[in-house]
Design a protein around this nucleic acid. Structure first.
Lengths: 146, 146
DNA sequence: ATAAAAGATAAAGTTCACTTGAAGTCAAGG
DNA sequence: CCTTGACTTCAAGTGAACTTTATCTTTTAT
């Protein structure tokens, strides 16, 4: 028996054992559904996800990093198309580092703008809540029961 | 000639002059397109928008307040359906004040959660940017030209 | 050995929030 | 007068991001 053949998801790669996960395990781990993982991959958001001999996806550490990164970009409102472009540049290699950095700088500014706008609008909600507090204290003072 | 008949958009209401705006003017003022204003009204997000004799919309101060409020709710991610519910409760009258306040408190918490999540993901982007800085300084040290 | 579970692809469907188009009415300017 | 532009309604269309369905293959468990 060859070493590690009893371990379902272990590959030998340059003498280094790499644990790989099935799509189901990644879905449970990340909270992203399997269909969405397949969709992201099809759209080119997840480069170099490997397959086993029969075509089933196997996710390694690097894939998990990509998923985490893509999730952060999505959660901060970056459109799929822009992430697509970023991954395309990444695949182009080191000559695109400057452009990728620019994209991230720009996105950082966008996130900061979103945060500022949320605070601004939160103020309006807080003002509304303050009005409700005034109404409540008026009701108390006048002894009106609801 | 009756007073004010030369002013297109002025009504006399309880001795008080109220300036009212056309949908086009409101669109320019708020940045919300006329179709969206109609859509919001149709969906019940804007109560008591008046019309002139021929059915054209006329927006007064109170309508502008509602638009501003609805805009703040939308910009902070409240779905149309929930704003609908809020306006429905508003129309029900004072007996729904407690529930409306609860909705706003809950929404405030959601906004605060969104802000926390944005900061959390902004950290990841900043980490990525830091990596790019490291790469750049490496390039400088080794005198590699791109 | 075989039934059930898990994975694959491709295409169609869903949801949300608008946006656009079609067709008609109304007011102002040349 | 009559054309132009701003309004109206209602219905259909759009785009983004998934999600679901159908059909087929592979793996796992009894």
């Amino acid at each position: 028996m060859l070493p590690n053949t009893h371990l379902k998801y272990t590959l030998i790669d340059g003498g280094e054992d790499l644990v790989v996960l099935t799509i189901k395990e990644v879905a449970e781990l990340t909270g992203i559904t399997a269909p969405t993982l397949r969709y992201y991959e099809k759209e080119g958001l997840l480069p170099h996800v490997k397959r086993n001999e029969t075509g089933k996806r196997l996710y390694d550490d690097e894939d998990l990093s990509w998923i985490s990164f893509v999730t952060a970009l999505r959660a901060t409102g970056m459109p799929i198309a822009q992430i697509q472009k970023y991954v395309y540049l990444y695949k182009e290699g080191d000559s695109t580092i400057a452009e990728r950095k620019m994209m991230m700088l720009h996105h950082k500014k966008e996130i900061e703008k979103s945060i500022r706008e949320l605070y601004f609008n939160l103020d309006k909600i807080n003002y509304k809540l303050a009005l409700y507090d005034v109404i409540e204290s008026q009701i108390e003072r006048t002894n009106i029961k609801i």
